[in-house]
């Protein structure tokens, strides 16, 4: 008996031969599958980012207004020596940090409840509640907040009904964070940022908490730890990577956003608006690119700090 007699009849069509050929050459198959996404990531995604960064090393000719494609640090010199730019950076970074902190503080108990206490149905409902706002237009939600926060809006009305109008006024009369109304103060900008980015914090924290097995929490109690100690020694350290992942979203999204501060708050510019103004209105692409480098550098510093503090040890 020959060996071929022991086999099933071979398919001879092109697709069959292709399929067999790929089956026998798994590396070729892997290459074919990975090439398009890697090209996308490498060339289009990172390529455009580096093209942008390269722009920041060009400068605009002051007379013609044209971009001179020669290597120069003049754009950075102009950028860094202008104190107004430092104000923009400081304002944006403080806002992003405050928003991130607030999101973490609000998201953690919600995520914790979802993972450790909510039943199946409630958990599904809470997931829906977290995701639902993401299905509607961001712009619509920001504009509705403008109405909510306006002087004649529901928050003022409600405060007055509760005879707490004086507290709102006292808050608005505070320096920096106050203003004529909530919708024209940094407080309003902050509130809307927290609202818009909160799901991006809740979801990673939920994912991190879900990866903590129940037995690990029981083991901690079994070894003598009271619930508060278990939380501090076991649950929190294991949830930190989720919080850091969420904070990458909230921090970087706040750094780059140019819509919310344009609609709600004082009309002082944030980083994203500066980029928009430089490249869209002033046509100074090199300066816009230099502005864009700031969030990239800041995120790099932030992640390096998080790593040094051991935020990723539990990964």
């Amino acid at each position: 008996m020959t060996s071929s007699a022991a086999m099933l009849p071979r398919e001879s069509g092109f697709l069959q031969r292709l399929s067999s050929g790929l089956y026998l050459r798994p590396r070729l198959l892997l290459f074919l599958l990975l090439a398009p996404p890697l090209l996308w990531l490498g060339v289009i995604y990172l390529g455009s980012l580096f093209a942008l960064l390269a722009q920041s090393f060009f400068a605009v000719d002051e007379f013609s207004g044209m971009v001179v494609k020669e290597f120069t640090l003049a754009t950075y010199r102009d950028f860094l020596t202008n104190p107004a730019n430092w104000d923009i950076i400081l304002r944006t970074v403080v806002m992003a940090a405050a928003v991130t902190l607030a999101c973490a503080v609000i998201a953690f108990p919600i995520a914790y409840y979802m993972v450790r206490f909510a039943g199946m149905r409630l958990k599904a409902a809470m997931y829906l509640g977290v995701m639902l706002p993401l299905w509607s237009s961001y712009l619509v939600r920001v504009y509705s907040w403008k109405l909510i926060l306006a002087k004649e809006g529901i928050i003022s009305w409600f405060a007055n009904q509760l005879h707490l109008g004086w507290a709102l006024d006292a808050w608005l009369s505070l320096p920096v964070i106050g203003g004529p109304s909530l919708s024209t103060s940094y407080t309003g900008t902050f509130v809307v940022f927290v609202y818009i980015w909160l799901p991006f914090m809740i979801l990673p924290v939920v994912a991190a908490l879900e990866r903590v097995p129940n037995s690990v929490i029981e083991a901690s109690g079994d070894l003598g730890a009271r619930p508060r100690q278990t939380f501090r020694q076991v649950i929190l350290p294991l949830a930190i990577p989720g919080v850091v992942a969420g904070s990458i979203f909230t921090f970087s999204l706040t750094l780059g956003d140019y819509i919310i501060p344009g609609i709600i708050g004082q009309s002082t510019p944030f980083l994203g608006q500066a980029v928009f103004a430089q490249q869209g209105i002033a046509g100074n692409i090199p300066l816009a690119a230099a502005f864009t480098v700031v969030p990239v550098v800041l995120m790099g510093i932030y992640l390096a700090l998080a790593k040094r503090l051991g935020a990723f040890d539990a990964l």
Binding site: P213, S215, V216, E218, A219, S220, D222, V234, D313, A314
Partner: peptide, 12 residues
């Protein structure tokens, strides 16, 4: 004290 089926070691 308990030895758990999945060991339940603290990964961090």
């Amino acid at each position: 004290n308990t030895v758990f089926q999945d060991y339940a070691l603290f990964p961090h």
